[in-house]
Computed example of a mutant assay.
Amino acid sequence: MAVFTPVTLDDIGQWIQQFPLGKALTIKGIASGIENSNFFLTTERGEYVLTIFENLSFEQLPFYLRLMDHLAARGVLVPAPVATNTGELLASLHGKPAAIVSKLEGRSQMDPQPVHCAAVGAMLARMHLAGQDYPLQQPNLRGLAWWNETTPQVLPYLSDESAHLLRAEMHFQQAFAGCETYRQLQQGPVHADLFRNNVMFDGERLTGFFDFYFAGCDTWLFDVAVTVNDWCINLDTGVLDTPRVRAMLDAYHAVRPFTAAEQEAWQPMLRAAALRFWLSRLYDFYQPREAEMLTPHDPTHFERILRERIATPAPGLY
């Protein structure tokens, strides 16, 4: 959520008229994140988030925006996209796709306790179930195919030790993705990026999931692993905090019980989730794009997590 495409009030004075939101009053860039240009937007009708998509196309974006609509209609707490006066969810701004969504209440919980992890686990399970009948299909664009494409681009920058780890883990994950247990895992739309800064709380009350622009169709277990690897760890070491892990997994399991295949795949999937973000952070760090307010994330964070997941078995799903 950096700013690659600056936008001023003058830029959107006429543009905003195609939405039923009244006059734009203020606009402020959002500094966090690294994929799209995001802004807090205040209009005569309330507070919203404006996103300009830097990589996703007009053809790809309906998957994400309609998914948010689909989930919201089924009681999942997500931002609601705002349609234009002609019913479109996308509009062109500075030659790029742009969308406006409602702004969630509360703030991100950056020091989560078991109660917060339980709320996230339960809502994530409800989200997975609610997406079962979503009709659009799109693969996880940061899945195995992207890992295979990206690995040779980042290997030249790594130390011998880190390069050995990356090659070995890619070999492990390619074999895992081809095994019978993996084929038995339940699949559907996933958020795929449900970090602490993509969830809002008002005290202990979860008010919503947002930033669905890495969503795609993948195994539900991958979504759980991504979430556990951020919400349930010591950020300095990557070590899992068992009370938080148990709170999240037990709350999820109470809504959507885990399967025997998922239990068998749990340890490899935690490694897969760590690898995905190690690779993306390596790519963003060594192949940066220019942007206002952009600070790439430290790749070594997820390298530590991956090493820890390989070395230390995590608590089971149930």
Rank of each mutant, 00 (worst) to 15 (best):
P81M: 05
P81D: 05
P81S: 05
P81R: 00
A83K: 09
A83R: 15
T84H: 01
T84A: 05
T84R: 01
T84Q: 00
G87V: 08
L89G: 04
L89Y: 04
L89P: 06
L90N: 03
A91Y: 09
A91W: 06
S92K: 12
S92G: 10
S92T: 14
G95E: 03
G95I: 08
K96G: 07
I100R: 06
V101A: 03
S102I: 06
S102Y: 06
K103F: 02
K103V: 01
L104A: 01
E105G: 12
G106E: 03
G106W: 00
R107D: 13
R107S: 12
S108T: 07
S108I: 04
M110R: 10
D111L: 15
P112Y: 00
P114C: 08
V115F: 05
V115G: 01
C117I: 02
C117Y: 06
C117L: 07
C117E: 09
A119C: 06
G121S: 05
M123P: 06
L124C: 05
L124T: 00
L124M: 08
M127Y: 03
L129E: 11
A130S: 13
A130G: 05
G131A: 04
G131T: 08
P135Y: 02
L136D: 14
Q137L: 10
Q138F: 09
P139G: 07
N140I: 01
N140C: 07
R142D: 04
G143Y: 04
G143T: 04
W146D: 10
W147G: 02
E149S: 10
E149R: 13
E149L: 13
T151S: 10
T151Q: 11
P152D: 13
V154A: 11
L155Q: 13
L155R: 12
P156S: 09
L158R: 10
L158Y: 02
E161A: 15
E161G: 14
S162F: 10
A163R: 14
A163W: 08
A163F: 07
L165N: 11
R167V: 15
A168S: 15
A168N: 14
A168P: 09
M170D: 12
M170Y: 10
F172Y: 11
F172I: 11
Q173D: 08
Q173E: 13
Q174T: 12
A175K: 15
A175Y: 09
F176D: 11
F176L: 08
F176Y: 14
A177H: 15
G178V: 06
G178F: 02
C179W: 10
E180A: 14
T181S: 12
T181V: 15
Y182V: 09
Q184L: 13
Q184N: 09
Q184I: 09
Q187S: 14
G188Q: 08
